[in-house]
């Protein structure tokens, strides 16, 4: 055996083939191969109480290009310019937290299961939707959606990355450090949603990021997605364009400032960059970028939406 590999280049060629195959497998496993773990049965989805006989409410809704209003849900979307960027701000008032929902691509929990925000929104009859935390791109970070726990592995990768947004059964937002939290305690408290991306933009009414705070080590302005709470059952979704000639994008501090100006007491950064998408009443209203600066929707793992 050793003699065989003593010949020049034999080992090099064989090892290069083994290494190439290994790298290919790891890349495909990480980025491409779908790994479904749980198929969500929409009829038994969570402790869903928001759809209890309310389908008629949607038919009575008043809908315009930038607003929606019925007995339970009021949405107003403003498009503003700031920081050399177009920013879409959705102001949302609901009568019950059950109207603030989350959904997975293909109604399936798992890794590399992806669909565009608009497809997931349409599949779930959403009224307004934004991209979520792209949980399926990682093997860590709490995933609890619509009252059901899917992943209890805490994110311990970094200071800001360990922060998760918890939406409780009353609809109030809070921030927890995943590494210091037993997710089962949150389940026992009937928490409604946990989103794991970060960092926290605003907590207890104050901005918690600085000019040096960034996702990973990005120091650039980027497309962004964030969610915040203004008061009881009063929320805001913010999505910014970026990476285009018309919009440079936002830093986290700029995003936090916008949320702060809207009156948020808690605000949390979700997956941004090419994932940043806001969809309203059948239309993508921002300019999502994919593969650099191409204007097209990126497929993502999950969305946060308002709907029945």
């Amino acid at each position: 055996m050793i003699k065989f590999f003593q010949k020049p280049y034999r080992w090099a060629v064989i090892y290069a083939i083994i290494l190439s195959l290994s790298v290919t497998f790891v890349l495909l496993n990480t980025f491409v191969i779908p790994q479904a773990e749980t198929k969500i049965d929409s009829s038994s989805d969570s402790q869903d109480s928001g759809n209890n006989g309310n389908s008629s409410d949607q038919s009575d809704a008043t809908i315009t290009d930038n607003s929606y209003k019925d007995d339970n849900i009021q949405i107003t979307i403003d498009t503003v310019r700031g920081y050399d960027t177009t920013v879409y701000i959705a102001d949302i008032q609901v009568s019950d937290i059950k109207y603030l929902k989350a959904a997975f691509a293909g109604s399936t929990y798992g890794r590399n299961i992806k669909e565009t925000t608009s497809n997931i929104a349409e599949d779930n009859n959403a009224i307004l939707a934004i991209n979520g935390d792209y949980y399926g791109f990682r093997d860590y970070g709490f995933v609890l959606r619509n009252g059901v726990l899917y992943r209890e592995t805490a994110d311990t990768t970094g200071d800001e990355g360990s922060e998760a947004l918890v939406i409780d059964s009353d609809g109030d937002f809070s921030i927890v450090d995943e590494s210091q939290t037993d997710v089962q305690d949150l389940v026992d408290q009937n928490v409604w949603q946990i989103l794991s991306f970060g960092p926290t933009l605003i907590n207890n009414g104050g901005i918690t990021v600085t000019a040096n705070s960034e996702v990973g080590k990005s120091m650039n302005s980027n497309p962004r997605t964030a969610i915040g709470q203004i008061s009881s059952l009063h929320y805001v979704f913010v999505v910014s364009d970026g990476r285009t000639s018309a919009s440079s994008g936002l830093t986290l501090l700029e995003l936090a400032q916008i949320m702060y100006d809207k009156g948020c007491t808690v605000a949390y950064n979700l997956d941004g960059g090419g994932s940043s998408t806001i969809w309203f009443n059948g239309e993508v209203i921002n300019k999502p970028t994919t593969n650099g600066d191409t204007i097209s929707e990126r497929s993502v793992s999950d969305i946060v939406y308002i709907g029945y």
Partner: peptide, 26 residues
């Protein structure tokens, strides 16, 4: 040499994953 190349490729893969915001158990 195989060890050096393997560690270098591991560094490259780790970088790709970190930049993309993902990870791999492998």
């Amino acid at each position: 040499s195989s060890g050096i190349i393997t560690l270098t490729i591991a560094g490259a893969l780790a970088g790709v994953f970190e930049i993309a915001g993902t990870s791999s158990p492998y």
